[in-house]
Nucleic acid binder design. Structure first.
Lengths: 227, 227
DNA sequence: AGAATAGTGTCTGTTAGACATTATAGA
DNA sequence: TCTATAATGTCTAACAGACACTATTCT
């Protein structure tokens, strides 16, 4: 917002990068994508792409997931703007880092568009030279500033799952407290106590008609998120 | 991060907007600036400017405060990227909203560069059509999407001052718990109990040699922020 | 009946909040 | 001595964590 015309200023390229998280058989995991093209070809990295004319950032994130991975995300969250002018050797590129979440099943049931896989997030978030992720093959770390994005994303997801039940809606509409606890324990990397967890979550849940079926033991009450 | 060359994509203009907060005689206040130039001339708005070539966002924020208000901020914090393609009638402009904090004395002791003033933040954050701020004159609300930026900034500042002692370093290096409490109460808009406040803060403080002087009553221990 | 899981009662240690008391300075 | 402020002791209510017990279903 300034005196001279916007057009008179040099403009940066603007990209979005996305840390896509999922819970895959009880393990918090992140989606990585094997780069094609000229730069860092063959390296595993976070998916990203350039913003198109007058496109919303959230749309660019959705499009990236659809084009690169054939996936649908649940709700992109902005994490930070990476603005080091030397972060990309191709020129002056600002990147808006995002977090998004998918259901892991969506990845398993489809044909890969490119080379895409879910890799586990390290419990200790990778101290020192080790990556936050357990990358495939011999690759040590993510390229560019993607390690920082990955760490921001895991922190943000854990913050949100500490505050209330399933903020990203990974569970179906109706769910049991057992399902909710398994999800939260996977995201946070802990094993909580069932009664403590129940009492912490109940204020944010509303019971709905019906109980879980098809399991052994006493059927569990179904809930939905309240308000 | 993508296949085609960055240069081949249309690029948005990128701006920074800054919500500058200060505590002015016990009142949380925000800096507003009376616009000059062609667009929304005369309206009170948040200071902002366009990003220069290969400039860091934090530098652009510092420069904006220096040029428009003759001020030095303490540490810019990114809040969000505002990406509605129609948010600015002059064209496609992305804005990275920031929070920064200044010492109110810095504004009182200098000659105004343009028309700049500190206005109080409303206790209820302005419900409905009322602004978050008590704007001067008859102006009801801030232009563009600045109302949202102002609200994000106040929320962020309060979150940070809820977690630990003076995260933005508004106080001098050594301070008493009385000073710290006055600051926190002003920022959060509450009046806390002195012993509860003390016990909540002590784990994050380290006593230093010396006591406060020049006041009535028993001299207070001086502290600094720990680690 | 036995196994497995859901849901609840209860104890305990910790902590926030509030109030009261003691300590130390200046006037 | 009086007043103002700093610093600490103590009581209470609320809460997290942990354990145990009861309830309900399937095999």
């Amino acid at each position: 917002m300034d005196e001279p015309s916007p057009a008179s200023f040099p403009r940066p390229s603007v990209a979005v990068d996305v840390a896509v998280l999922a819970v895959d058989s009880g393990q918090l995991s992140m989606l990585v994508w094997q780069r094609t093209g000229n730069t860092k070809k063959g390296e595993w990295a976070l998916p990203g792409s350039f913003l198109r004319e007058r496109e919303r950032l959230a749309s660019a994130v959705d499009r990236t997931l659809a084009d690169k991975c054939g996936l649908t995300g649940l709700a992109p969250t902005q994490l930070a703007v990476l603005d080091d002018p030397d972060r990309d050797e191709r020129g002056w590129v600002l990147s808006v880092a995002h977090l998004d979440v998918i259901r892991a099943e969506a990845l398993e049931l489809r044909e890969p568009v490119g080379e895409v896989c879910l890799v586990p997030v390290r419990g200790d978030l990778g101290s020192g030279r080790r990556s936050v992720l357990e990358l495939p093959g011999r690759q040590r770390r993510l390229p560019f500033d993607h390690e920082m994005i990955a760490r921001l994303a895991v922190d943000e997801l854990r913050d949100r799952y500490s505050l209330g039940p399933d903020p990203y809606g990974l569970l179906p509409e109706k769910f049991t407290i057992r399902q909710l606890r398994a999800l939260h324990d996977s995201v946070l990397g802990v094993t909580s106590q069932k009664d403590t967890f129940r009492r912490a979550m109940l204020p944010f849940l509303a019971a709905v008609d019906g109980v879980a079926s098809g399991t052994v033991g006493r059927p569990a009450q179904l809930y939905r998120r309240a308000r």
